[in-house]
Design a protein around this nucleic acid. Structure first.
Lengths: 337, 337
DNA sequence: ATGAAAGCGCTAACAG
DNA sequence: CTGTTAGCGCTTTCAT
């Protein structure tokens, strides 16, 4: 049942060492023997045991992906991109999802289920504590962050400040002065840096234009549609003057707001302009103006650097700031006269 | 640097065999020595090498997940569910995404990167060719399908026919007779069975009520918002009488249609009722009537069965038909008078 | 209850 | 260019 390298060696009438070289495309094997060996491999349907070669080489040809969730927009897409790069290089992807709950973290970091199991790690947009970071760096495997800054790691991400600024300026340039903000603050212990980066840039950009956003126009949506709807309710229900535009830190939240607006007869963009960040699949369909980013590409590029590093090109891992782009659609317009 | 079992044995002054037993909680170790060993483990921060134990035992404590995409609603959620169950049992999740392109399949099945690398496999809603199925079954590892039927495998899924029927009957009972259908036919070679199951049930249910859906009211949306918008355009642009309701085979497509309807001033539900399947996060926010299913739970249950099977409970893997539920929201109403 | 020793299947010098 | 020989780190009889 278990066809091993010995079987191949026997069939091809060579030593296992030669089989090993031939299979891995190493030099020092004559074309003739190589062909014979490959034929034997084919005939027997032989596949090397990863455990065995892992044990012998100390490498697993597997990279880990640590994500807070596997089922959210940014993560799903970046995982797909990572996977693509790994696939192209014959690497496997071991997924560690924290499942959104803080408890999983400890198990990951202390249990160290990781070590010896992966050759490199990509950390998806996850704030890490100093302890955790230390744990990771201690493993001495190549690391790279995607979608957010991680101390001591290179990362592939957008300039979140620039993105928020671009979105905000778009509104300002349209003539808006009463601009609200829906941010993605999270309640749990997954300390992202991203929400803060975007909010700070918003405030800064507003200030630079001599504008300010009153507290009651600053609502929290946690990056999801569902909470976007709730935040929109809070905003719309707040007493006092209404904003003419809103910058949402993600498209999902922006769409939650749009749904709620529609329910209340608030017309977009006539009564209220909305801009988001992401360019979620739904955004084009919904006509949402947004700042585009491409998480699949982020994951892909990050994994490529990892592959290069593992292939021996030390120093392949570096920071990459990824492009963003303002995509103007129907959800933004000048403020009502 | 690499602390091995020998280091632990030395520190605890026992043999490696005893260390091995102690760590894995096997009997035949006196409480005293066990404690001593565990202390040594702690002190050294020892973690067994998965490659080594894998080689020795033939088991990897890893299960594979084969998915057509990692970044689509159903898959992202079911992966999360699988991961949860694995996490609870100390198993790892190796993700194989076909990345939506047919090329990846061959590599997966022939390369057999899988064998010896995983103890079990969950196949996500993926039509497989006979060859591929044979390849899989040949590996002799436990298999289970999630989200769709796979010949020769048990599966965790909803009754797609019942779901489509429930949705269709809801429209019929509201009094609709001119009902359109947006199905999820796929153009590529990933031959799902699901779209056909839903469409057949729709047609059957219509027929049972003495109704029929003319060809031009039968459009293809490929399960995505984007194509849902396009399909909606085709439907709305078609000459002749208009339907008063539409059954979309997924919420994403349904929302694509709703966005397009809104753009054209077609009011929902006054002019057109819409029902979908899934209960996507966006659906509650958008007020879409739908048939709820819970992919996270599907993945979780499937992985649990796998865990039981691997734990020695042969026969743990069986078909599970998961519940569905009609969730009535604002997108459906009686037809205009 | 514990230890000695023989692998698990592959790779990596080192010879030749 | 090819074979020999040790391991890689852990598990597992089989003794003791």
């Amino acid at each position: 049942m278990a066809v091993s390298i010995d079987d191949v060696a026997a069939l091809a009438q060579v030593s296992t060492a030669t089989v090993s070289r031939a299979i891995r495309g190493l030099p020092r094997v004559s074309p003739a023997t190589r062909a014979r060996i490959l034929a034997a491999v084919e005939e027997l349907g032989y596949v090397a045991s990863p455990s065995a070669s892992g044990l012998a080489t100390g490498r697993t040809r597997t990279v880990g992906v640590l994500a807070p969730y596997a089922d959210r927009w940014y993560f799903g897409h970046s995982i797909e991109g990572v996977d693509k790069a790994l696939r192209e290089n014959g690497y496997n992807l071991l997924l560690f999802s924290l499942g959104g709950y803080a408890g999983g973290r400890k198990r990951f970091f202390t249990g160290n289920m990781v070590r010896k199991q992966i050759d490199a790690l990509v950390v998806l947009c996850l704030g890490l504590t100093e302890d955790e970071l230390e744990q990771l760096h201690k493993t001495e495997i190549p690391l790279i962050a995607v979608g957010g800054p991680v101390a001591g790691c290179s990362s592939v991400m957008i300039d979140d400040g620039a993105a928020a600024e671009l979105a905000t300026r778009h509104l300002i340039e349209l003539g808006h002065t009463r601009i609200a903000h829906m941010h993605g603050a999270v309640e749990d212990k997954l300390n992202f840096a991203v929400p803060a980066l975007r909010t700070e840039a918003f405030t800064r950009t507003m200030a630079a234009a001599g504008l300010a956003c009153p507290p009651q126009w600053n609502v929290a949506g946690n990056f999801t549609v569902t909470e976007g709807v709730q935040a929109a309710r809070a905003l719309f229900d707040a007493p006092g003057p209404k904003p003419t535009a809103i910058f949402c830190a993600s498209d999902e939240m922006a769409m939650g707001l749009m749904f709620e607006a529609q329910r209340r007869g608030i017309r977009i963009p006539q009564d209220l302009s909305v801009v988001g960040i992401d360019d979620h699949e739904f955004s084009a369909a919904a006509g949402l103006t947004t700042i585009r980013q491409e998480p699949t590409e982020h994951g892909y590029l990050a994994a490529r650097m990892l592959m290069a590093e593992l292939a021996g090109a030390a120093g392949s891992i570096e920071d990459m700031l990824q492009p963003i782009e303002l995509v103007v659609r129907g959800s933004t317009a000048p403020p009502p006269a």
